[in-house]
Amino acid sequence: MTKQISKSSYKPVGIVLGLAAGTLSGMVFQRIWAMTMRGDAPHPIDEERGWGEVLLAAAMQGAIVAVIRASIDRAGATGIRKFTGHWPHD
């Protein structure tokens, strides 16, 4: 048996973790936006919101998604190693 977990074997775990990361990051972004900007986050085609507010929201959301996604992916790989004794590889 190989000492590596292939990318295809890890893919189902990665899909589930990706869905969880997306859901969690959306909730975190909405909460942070509401606490700091006192209202709902702007939608890109909201005519009432300016470019600056829309782009700030997009930048914040992108950063939050990236940090949460990386954290969850790393935790998933660590969990696989603890469960199987091997790190998932390409």
Rank of each mutant, 00 (worst) to 15 (best):
Gln61Asp: 10
Pro42Asn: 01
His86Glu: 13
Gly85Glu: 11
Ser8Asp: 14
Ala59Phe: 07
Gln4Trp: 05
Pro12Thr: 03
Gly50Ser: 04
Gly85Arg: 04
Lys7Cys: 12
Gly85Asn: 09
Leu55Glu: 08
Gln4Ser: 12
Lys82Glu: 06
Lys11Tyr: 10
Val54Asn: 05
Lys11Arg: 13
Gly76Pro: 03
Val28Cys: 09
Glu47Gly: 13
Lys7Thr: 13
Val67Arg: 00
Val54Lys: 15
Arg81Met: 09
Ala66Gly: 08
Gly39Phe: 08
Lys3Ser: 14
Asp73Trp: 06
Ile32Arg: 06
Val13Phe: 11
Lys7His: 11
Ile45Cys: 03
Met1Lys: 14
Thr2Glu: 12
Ala58Lys: 05
Ser9Asn: 13
Pro12Trp: 06
Thr36Gln: 13
Gln4Met: 09
Ile80Gln: 04
Ala21Gly: 03
Pro42Ile: 00
Gly18Glu: 04
Lys7Trp: 15
Ile68Phe: 02
Pro88Ile: 07
Gly26Ser: 11
Gly26Gln: 09
Glu48Leu: 03
Ile45Glu: 12
Gly22Ser: 05
Asp46Asn: 14
Ile5His: 03
Thr36Met: 11
Trp33Asn: 07
Leu55Asp: 01
Ser8Phe: 08
Gly18Trp: 05
Phe83Arg: 12
Leu24Asp: 02
Met60Ser: 05
Val28Asn: 06
Gly76Ser: 08
Ala63Asn: 05
Lys7Ile: 10
Gly22Pro: 06
Phe29Gln: 03
Ser8Ala: 14
Ile15Val: 15
Gly85Ser: 10
Ser9Gly: 12
Ile80Pro: 01
Ala21Met: 01
Ala21Arg: 01
Ser71Leu: 12
Val54Ser: 09
Val13Trp: 09
Ile72Lys: 04
Ile72Asn: 04
Gln30Phe: 08
Ala66Asn: 04
Leu24His: 01
Pro44Gly: 07
Leu19His: 07
Val16Thr: 13
Met37His: 13
Ile64Thr: 10
Ser6Met: 10
Ala70Trp: 09
Ala59His: 00
Leu19Trp: 11
Asp90Leu: 07
Gly79Phe: 09
Glu48Tyr: 04
Asp73Lys: 10
Ala77Phe: 03
Trp87Gln: 10
Ile45His: 06
Ser9Thr: 14
Thr84Asp: 04
Lys11Gly: 00
Ser9Gln: 15
Lys3Glu: 14
Val54Gln: 12
Pro88Glu: 06
Met37Cys: 05
Val65Thr: 07
Thr23Cys: 13
Ala59Gly: 12
Lys11Glu: 09
Glu48Asn: 12
Ala58Leu: 09
Phe83Asn: 08
Ile80Trp: 05
Gly22Gln: 02
Ser6Ala: 14
Asp46Ile: 03
Ala34Trp: 03
Leu24Tyr: 08
Thr78Lys: 13
Ser6Phe: 06
Thr36Val: 08
Thr2Asn: 13
Ala34Glu: 10
Lys82Asn: 04
Tyr10Thr: 00
Leu17Asn: 07
Gly76Tyr: 02
Lys3Thr: 15
Thr84Phe: 07
Gln30Arg: 13
Ala59Met: 13
Asp40Lys: 02
Gly76Trp: 02
Ile15Arg: 14
Ser9Lys: 11
Val65Tyr: 07
Met35Arg: 15
Trp87Thr: 11
His43Ile: 08
Arg38His: 14
Trp33Lys: 03
Glu53Tyr: 00
Leu56Glu: 10
Gln61Phe: 11
Glu48Ala: 14
Pro42Tyr: 00
Tyr10Pro: 00
Ser71Phe: 10
Asp73His: 04
